[in-house]
């Protein structure tokens, strides 16, 4: 009987360590730093088509330190299960001029609480030119460092 008690105690201790570790992972992953795999041609020439591994930090969008020119990871407004990587072109209150699908130029003021995002490769990117300014709440983090491929290792500037 006592033996079983000891085994159960030890099992609970082990399990609680695992649970704590998972919780720590979750908190770092969603509040500090995570890695992300970026695929697709929409951010050429900054990021490659074949898939770059980048580091994303989740602090600066919470304290409102994002500005235009920053690369951000955004939950896609068209499909909430997907995340997309784009560049912020304008913050709320800024005026943007862009060419719409039918090659006419339009300009508008980004409304309150929204940001305007575009890909660096204007020809293939699906971005704010298609679905308009996106709510700031969809921003998940700022992409600031490239880990893979090795020759592109380094911070991603403005």
């Amino acid at each position: 009987m006592r033996q079983w008690m000891n085994i159960a105690k030890e099992a609970i201790a082990r399990a609680s360590i695992v649970v704590k570790f998972i919780c720590l992972l979750h908190v770092t992953d969603s509040y500090l730093l995570s890695s992300s795999h970026v695929l697709g041609p929409s951010m050429l020439p900054t990021l490659n088509t074949t898939g770059d591994v980048v580091l994303v930090e989740h602090l600066s969008h919470r304290i409102g330190k994002l500005g235009s020119g920053d690369l951000v990871l955004v939950r896609s407004p068209l499909d909430p299960k997907k995340s997309i990587t784009k560049r912020i072109i304008a913050m709320e209150g800024d005026k943007v001029t862009f060419s719409a699908r039918n090659h006419s130029f339009r300009s508008l003021v980004v409304p309150k609480g929204h940001v305007w995002i575009q890909g660096d490769n204007l020809y293939v990117s699906r971005d704010s030119r298609e679905f308009g300014p996106i709510p700031y709440g969809l921003v998940q983090g700022k992409v600031f460092f490239r880990v893979w491929p090795p020759k592109g290792f380094g911070s991603l500037g403005q």
Partner: peptide, 19 residues
């Protein structure tokens, strides 16, 4: 996990105008 909602669900969401 999969963003499946049905009509009539009560949801909590971030305001689009102020995150």
């Amino acid at each position: 996990r999969n963003y499946k909602f049905s009509h009539g669900d009560v949801i909590v969401f971030c305001s689009p105008n102020d995150h």
